[in-house]
Design a binder for these strands. Structure first.
Lengths: 212, 212
DNA sequence: GTTTATCTTGACACATGTGTCAACTTGTTT
DNA sequence: AAACAAGTTGACACATGTGTCAAGATAAAC
């Protein structure tokens, strides 16, 4: 996916530009989160951002362009939380789970937007899934497979392990209203998230037969 | 939430009625799944169902009414997969995980619609979350707490355990495009789902210190 | 301080979606 | 087969959303 700017896109410059684009993106993220891609409207985004609709069109050709810009920023962030090898499984997976839980805490909007995209069929992520994502997956699969062959953990399909970690961690961002209802709280505290990370790490490491 | 029918709602009768409502609901579910609540339109639903728009309005007052009907049916199904006590933890949790995985396989649309509702803030589920859901949660929490006190499993917060099971199982329905991309398949087979259930059960039971 | 690029905005033409109604057709009941 | 209930439909009035443009305001560069 390419980041499409308005056709009259200037070479560089911009301070006003930067400020306004940031206003638009923040407003748009909210609108996409509340109403989904199709349900969001430039009208509503402009109102949230506090600028006239025609001005939004000056910076972004259309809704697709705004969405692409937001999505590409989320993908960049997502990719950066990579498993590093050369360490023991307990350390690597523990760190990864911790990072994922903290991502749910710090970037719930990004997590939910990402989830929304998949739920609605991921029409805008096909390219990503077949390139960067697939490469990443294959690398990680090989690392985990290596651990199994070295007897460092039980024979568990690496993909199922990854899906379990993703599902369990993202749940706290994506299903937030359900989680808070179950816990009878308005909002999870920092301490809650630490507990989540610790509990999940415990279940998964022990469940995979990984010794600390 | 109440199921609102058209104001001229007849006492009973209906064969034509049943057939058409079913057509509308099926078409609407697809449209809601693709575009979210706000993004779906009665126009598009009518076209999918192959009937004129005015006819949809004859059966349902508006989009809200259609959505409420669909959601209430999903909630009824959801509630029915309940943990039964008086059994050993390994059996109860194993069965529950299996049921949840099979639900993701058999009713992916329902799972995704439910997820979509939470992601967009669950505006239409507040009542449910505070009543039926909360009651169910508190019962299950007590059962698991009991197991911990009897030394049948490790001391793990029952809620975190439930969230882990939900997140891990629903992931296969909600993030289907991501899962199939990672597995380099078009679609998961029955055998894949059996494997998922088995692996997940293994990880979670062992991870919670539950003996078979 | 004038010029030039950047930004702002109301207004217009068009597209999509909504809810209702009255006239009509089809089922159902007796 | 007559009578009434249920279902069907095109058309209308209205609401919301889109993309573009031309004229004017503001900022940047010289």
């Amino acid at each position: 996916m390419t980041i499409e700017k308005h056709s009259k896109q200037p070479p560089s410059s911009g301070r006003v530009r930067k400020k306004n684009q940031s206003l638009i993106l923040k407003a748009a993220e909210q609108d996409f989160l509340e109403h989904g891609f199709k349900g969001a409207s430039i009208k509503s985004i402009a109102e949230r951002a506090g600028i006239p609709r025609a001005n939004v069109h000056y910076y972004y050709k259309n809704k697709e362009a705004i969405y692409a810009d937001i999505l590409s920023k989320i993908l960049a962030l997502w990719d950066s939380s990579i498993i590093v090898c050369d360490e023991e499984p307990a350390k690597v997976l523990g760190d990864y789970i911790y990072a994922k839980v903290m991502y749910s805490k710090t970037n719930p909007e990004a997590s939910r937007l990402f989830a929304s995209e998949f739920i609605h069929g991921a029409p805008r992520l096909q390219a990503y899934l077949k390139t960067d994502f697939k490469t990443w997956i294959d690398e990680v699969k090989a690392i985990i497979q290596g651990w199994i062959e070295q007897g460092k953990m039980d024979a568990i399909d690496p993909l199922y392990l990854l899906f379990t970690i993703w599902g369990a961690t993202q749940h706290y961002a994506d299903f937030c209203p359900q989680v808070t209802a179950a816990m009878a709280k308005d909002k999870l505290t920092d301490h809650d998230f630490e507990q989540v990370a610790q509990t999940l790490t415990q279940i998964i490491l022990k469940g995979c037969g990984i010794k600390k």
